[in-house]
Design a protein around this nucleic acid. Structure first.
Lengths: 149, 149
DNA sequence: GTTGAAAAAATATTGAG
DNA sequence: CTCAATATTTTTTCAAC
């Protein structure tokens, strides 16, 4: 699906605040809300808009520590190892990457103690991983969700 | 602010779909929509809910490549260097981390060629960084937004 | 904190240009 | 693709428990 500038304007508004009423989106881009409704529906159907999510503060729900974890996977063990990671609640992202690590995780934990437990008791236990490195996020300087539109 | 199980149930619903009408949230948790409205408002005010965002498919808006970039920062140059990164559109996240890298970026680019340009012409140019490593995301196996609730 | 009910506003749908 | 008009649904407010 190709997007014109009107579609992109709608995307930018909903990316910044997904609960903006279509009537206001319409006002801002100077079109009728029926048009907005129509275009949003088409972008949802085409998969351009993958969903709408409330951003929840991790600290508010008890997760004081976030980290990236790099992992090396032994040849041929990828599949089984990755399947097991998906079941761990604290693992929020699993990426296969080039470079020093085969897998890069983003994880959350209540505190450094829970993080240690997560790493040693639940990730290190999974067969197929050799080396790992934990990069604790000391501060997130800047974070935008999704791509620029 | 402390959250009870009702708050958490609301959070889970809005985390999965931020445009769920409050009337339906109410039906699912078996409360009135006035209560949902009230609780959501309080969680927004308290910063538990940081916002609502449409998830846009990067490929649909022309970004075919995503990557993590690790950077080493020279002593005392952190501030200036980070300020400049924030101005680069393709840099979506900037984290200060422990471990092998001082700074970990998440970036998007149209293709590998644009990624090379981003790395060499725009990130390497910023004063204060020494080594860098680019970890291209070959595949995202799993990705949840925000913490488990 | 919660509720039902009323008023205000938004969304979904339709038919036509 | 866009719109105006309409029907339906939701949001928001508020007095009362």
């Amino acid at each position: 699906m190709e997007l014109d500038e009107t579609d992109r304007a709608i995307l930018r508004i909903l990316q910044a605040d997904a609960r903006t009423p279509f009537s206001e989106v319409a006002r801002r881009i100077d079109m009728s809300s029926a048009t907005v409704h129509d275009r949003v529906g088409r972008m949802e159907d085409a998969g351009v808009i993958e969903g709408y999510h409330a951003a929840v503060d991790p600290k508010a729900v008890g997760y004081g520590v976030s980290a990236f974890v790099g992992l090396r996977v032994e040849q041929g063990r990828e599949e089984n190892a990755l399947d097991k990671l998906r079941d761990v609640d604290e693992i929020r992202e699993v990426h296969l990457t080039t470079g020093e690590w085969d897998v890069l995780l983003r994880v959350v934990a209540a505190d450094t103690d829970s993080l240690r437990e997560l790493m040693f008791d639940r990730i290190a236990e999974v067969d197929g991983f050799s080396r790992s490195q934990t990069m604790i996020i000391l501060e997130t300087d800047y974070e935008e969700d999704g791509p620029p539109v």
